[in-house]
């Protein structure tokens, strides 16, 4: 069931933050990739029922969020991590996740406490669950919000920049943490996260989806169009200095150029360049 958007548009004044977007996420982890301001967060807010679209249709877990009863059913099965999750600094992680669990209709106090402990242990916060949130690091706060999203074993997780503030080890563990959720839609501007986490990727630029496919297919967009040289090439669409000291170029390679294997970054950059003309 997952999530399905059909020509969904969201405007703020004259600006279309999301412009006639169609996207399907029917299982696994789907990554939404794009630069800041591309409309990713607005799209995720609609997928999380925070915002209603101005036009187009949206189906979440097989239900219509425009219908009140179905909206409540969706919210019972949904977990959401906003881009900048605000927390109550005076609460402990346990109290905060307990608060969210109450809002998620976990009315039985004993069972709720078991669930709160489960999600806090799942994100590795069992040692600090009774410390005030204002005393926790940024990464720990991010994990508190992630734990709140995981309450009730949601069928759909909508995560806006979930790896923000996480160290490399925690980023690696994030994948196994998300594996139990049937469908995950996450946004990021970090391309390495997509290759590490996602089965499917959608690239969003200026409010529109310009690519959907696997991470390998995104990389393949740049097949035969990446070469390396000791010097800058003015004919290249994009050139940048690598850590090895050579220049990596993107575009139509000149004859005799040393064409190299494209990466996900190459595919994404080529796509972004093509879209921006």
């Amino acid at each position: 069931m997952g999530l399905s958007l059909d020509h969904v548009t969201k405007r703020f004044g004259a600006h279309s933050a999301v412009d006639a977007v169609s996207l399907s996420a029917a299982g696994g982890i789907v990554g939404l990739l794009g630069p800041n301001g591309a409309g990713k967060s607005t799209l995720l807010r609609m997928a999380a029922t925070v915002l209603a679209p101005d036009s187009g249709s949206l189906s979440i877990l097989g239900r219509d969020p425009a219908d009140h009863r179905q909206l409540v059913e969706i919210r019972r099965r949904l977990g959401y991590l906003p881009q900048n999750p605000g927390l109550y600094g005076g609460f402990t992680p346990f109290d905060f996740v307990d608060y969210v669990a109450v809002l998620k209709e976990h009315t039985d106090a004993a069972r709720r406490r078991v669930e709160v402990r489960r999600v806090l242990e799942a994100v590795g916060l069992e040692d600090v669950m009774h410390r005030r949130i204002r005393r926790l690091s940024g990464g720990m706060r991010q994990r508190v919000a992630l734990a709140a999203a995981l309450v009730g074993r949601p069928e759909l997780l909508v995560l806006d920049e979930p790896a923000n503030g996480l160290d490399p080890d925690q980023r690696l563990r994030l994948r196994s943490l998300l594996a139990d959720t049937p469908t995950v839609l996450l946004s990021t501007h970090n391309i390495s996260e997509v290759s590490a986490l996602c089965r499917q990727v959608a690239v969003m630029l200026e409010g529109r989806i310009v690519f959907t496919g696997t991470p390998a297919e995104l990389a393949d967009l740049a097949a035969g169009r990446v070469w390396e040289d000791e010097r800058q090439d003015p004919q290249a669409l994009r050139s940048w200095l690598t850590s090895a000291g050579s220049y990596r170029h993107l575009g139509e390679p000149p004859s005799g150029a040393t064409v190299v294997e494209p990466t996900l970054d190459d595919g994404y950059l080529l796509l972004a360049r093509r879209e921006h003309g």
Binding site: R75, P85, G86, V100, K104
Partner: peptide
Amino acid sequence: PAGEIGLVAPVA
């Protein structure tokens, strides 16, 4: 600050 997290809960 945590309003958006609460907003998508069924009780919100």
